[in-house]
Design a binder for these strands. Structure first.
Lengths: 175, 175, 175, 175
DNA sequence: AATGAATGAGATTTCATTCAT
DNA sequence: TATGAATGAAATCTCATTCAT
């Protein structure tokens, strides 16, 4: 039931109707509206995380650029497969209680850690603050995809991905 | 009156109370809630735009890096000076009617145009899609600043700016 | 199953759960919620009535005071044995449909009749309206016991009974 | 607005409609439904208390029987003047959260204290537990009046009062 | 017969907007 | 013009009842 949630008119009635169940049924499954959205995000997060880990695993020994590209392909793939949830995780989620960081919290850490490692190995500009760069890139990625999803004259998917790859700190600020 | 709007509980009653006027007065000045927020954003946009133009003018002939840095200093300065409005323009604005792109629409165009120019002059990676890159950087910039504004253990302002400078497509993807 | 009904959250779901059966099963046994409560009360009423009759029978020829005391001992004994049902009969029952007088209807009649008899025999204050007195005493009795059941610093059971005996119209208004 | 509340269908909509205001207006005046009922009871309590004090003052030096009668006349008068509120205070109030003792808490104390005094002066049966007797009489009084208010073939008001006077512990258990 | 997930009417509550003062 | 009490449509949530398994 979470799986099918579209969420344009995000109110309990439409959520329920859209899911094809009665209002009461909704409240049998979720404590309240927030609980539902949290669950919806959490599910998406888990799924996205799995996709990203798979992409990472598949490019384990490869060049950094390949790793980054694989992650982006997975990320965009997720967005295309479930745009409603993607919007929830990366856009609507923001306006919920500030505790729910939506999907934003997801990759920070991973990117941040990777950048630290690369800095130590001298592969990346030491002037970069990894925390800032990680958050900035995560936002760039998600917002660019959000725009791309709904703008009718957005470029090709490959253009999107190619550009984002080039903007990833590990690529753009490589030494 | 627009100027002083804080907007935690963004409902007309609190907006009015917070602005120190009656609800009725609020509706004397603005068609409706959306009109107010639009006006609030527009005012901010204009102010921010002025700051950015000033920064640009002040670094007219200088190196690209200096120009980018000056813009970022202006951007962060604006956020620090009026964080409530900044949040409205770059975070809350998203969840409003999709027509109001908030502050996001602001710099796209400028960055996009600049990137086109640099690509033509062969100064920047031709693999970059300027529309994507511009939007991505704009999002990176605004979201990073949003985070920096409210995270108590965010880094120094200079770290923030230095890092964002290095991530700007015109710098990061320079040839 | 009726027997075990505790009823703090008096809604069909908790009633069923508390009784250890499914909601559906509940509706197999009772027309609806009201029917259940009616049945629950009726069962209690019957049981209480039996206790009172037994007490009466056991003190058939004795002094009025002994008869009254025996009834009160039975009444309090019932309350102690099944406080949840007692509460239903004498407290919650009131807020149900006004037709269900709960346990209150029970003793009126008996007390009323007894008072009539005593008045005719000249044993009791003729200024007493038996209908009023009977209802008043019934309420006094049940509400006092309700309070006594749940107030942690209520007096001894014997104090409760001794006092109620002395307040019974047949004792208090004896000539 | 509290003053005019009839409350048969005690739900916020009917309360508001019955008071001749919109639903929203209701919530401008009261935090929530419970707050309203509490306020409604509190107002009634205060009014009743004033009536009782006046009755007491008016019969200050008189015989106990006169004092008791005056209180009862005041009590019944209150019930007749505002039966809806009386029902709320002494019947519906019970089924609210157990914290709201409704009107029941009102006279206990006064009666209890009076009985203690009379016991010390040797005017009243020392076998009476004042706490029990006070609560019992309070309940007798209120429940008898409730019944009297709504039973079409209830006796005259004077019968009601005469009988309750005779049942008051200070009269009935006088030595 | 027993079950409990599903239901939806109805109760509570919020909030953008109006309007009499 | 400024005000804020009043409004009611719409949102959230509850719970007695049904029905497919």
């Amino acid at each position: 039931m979470i799986a099918e949630c579209g969420l344009e008119g995000v109110n309990t009635n439409s959520i329920a109707r859209r899911a094809g169940v009665g209002v009461g049924t909704f409240y049998r499954h979720f404590e309240d509206k927030h609980a539902f959205l949290r669950a919806c995000m959490a599910e998406g997060l888990e799924s996205l995380q799995a996709d990203l880990l798979a992409a990472q695993a598949a490019t384990a020994g490869a060049e950094v650029r390949e790793q980054v590209r694989a992650s982006l392909v997975a990320f965009v793939g997720f967005a295309v497969r479930d745009p409603a949830r993607f919007r929830l995780m990366f856009s609507l989620g923001h306006s919920l209680s500030p505790r729910f960081r939506g999907g934003r919290g997801l990759s920070h850490r991973a990117v941040e850690r990777a950048l630290y490692g690369m800095q130590e190995r001298g592969d990346v500009d030491p002037g970069l603050n990894p925390a800032v760069a990680a958050r900035a890139f995560t936002a760039a990625q998600s917002q660019a995809v959000l725009w791309w999803l709904q703008d009718p004259d957005a470029p090709e998917e490959s253009d999107l991905i190619d550009t984002l790859v080039r903007l990833h700190p590990a690529i753009a600020c490589r030494i």
